[in-house]
Amino acid sequence: MAKLVNFFRTAAMVSLTLTAISLPVAGGSASAAPVAPPAPQAVVKAPLLSPAAKMQMRRDRTTVCVNAHVQNVGWQGWRCSTNRKPAIAGTVGRSLRLEALAISTMRPGGVCAQAHVQDQGWQRSKCTGRAGNVAIGTQGRSLRMEALRLSTRTPLCAQAHVATVGWQKLECSRRAGQIQVGTVGRSLSIEALRVLA
């Protein structure tokens, strides 16, 4: 008889335990399956500078080099502004979004960049420092870069090619200024960027 009572007691405890596991709790539901932590935000790392980009920046310390991560293409390679000619990154006429942008310079004071990204809004600002290059935007998440802010202590100009808009007007900063290109709140991607140091 004692064995039968212990059997029912054990069965009752197992039944209560299973019931407790499957009952909903405030703010969600309990389950036997573990809950996966939210995916961390992808950190974009700037690709290594090409030898040509390093040489150009050694020759002219005002040079700004850019490298765009483009939808279905990936990183395009470093392009540098030279002799008052702009560095052009991205594509025109192919309807491919810019997803990330790397910037490198040896200019006094460097350059700070901030991206407005689809579904994220404005990311935090990143500045070139001793490392010399920074990357903004996202990689591997298929999110468009919609706007870009650049700030510097020395003059800098930028121009964005925006989906369904085309090339916007050239925006230039004076000394310690900030420029913004692209659009906010219109769900339009930047497809190409010109930077002129």
Results as ranks from 00 to 15, higher is better:
residue 197 A to L: 04
residue 22 S to A: 15
residue 91 T to S: 09
residue 75 W to E: 03
residue 126 K to Q: 08
residue 182 G to V: 07
residue 22 S to C: 13
residue 158 A to F: 03
residue 14 V to K: 10
residue 12 A to E: 06
residue 188 L to C: 10
residue 3 K to T: 09
residue 170 L to Y: 07
residue 54 K to R: 15
residue 126 K to G: 01
residue 137 G to P: 02
residue 178 Q to E: 12
residue 44 V to C: 05
residue 31 S to E: 10
residue 104 S to Y: 00
residue 40 P to C: 01
residue 74 G to H: 14
residue 179 I to D: 02
residue 6 N to M: 13
residue 31 S to D: 14
residue 67 N to V: 04
residue 177 G to E: 00
residue 62 T to F: 01
residue 43 V to K: 12
residue 183 T to D: 08
residue 184 V to S: 03
residue 108 P to V: 03
residue 101 L to F: 01
residue 129 G to P: 00
residue 65 C to W: 00
residue 164 T to N: 14
residue 195 V to M: 03
residue 29 S to E: 15
residue 48 L to I: 01
residue 48 L to N: 09
residue 147 A to V: 04
residue 54 K to A: 08
residue 138 T to N: 02
residue 113 A to Q: 03
residue 61 R to I: 06
residue 92 V to Q: 15
residue 166 G to R: 12
residue 164 T to I: 11
residue 164 T to V: 12
residue 95 S to K: 15
residue 190 I to K: 02
residue 56 Q to K: 08
residue 59 R to T: 09
residue 150 L to V: 01
residue 119 D to H: 09
residue 78 W to G: 07
residue 171 E to P: 03
residue 75 W to L: 04
residue 184 V to L: 04
residue 141 R to G: 06
residue 6 N to H: 13
residue 120 Q to A: 09
residue 76 Q to C: 03
residue 163 A to L: 15
residue 160 A to H: 06
residue 9 R to M: 11
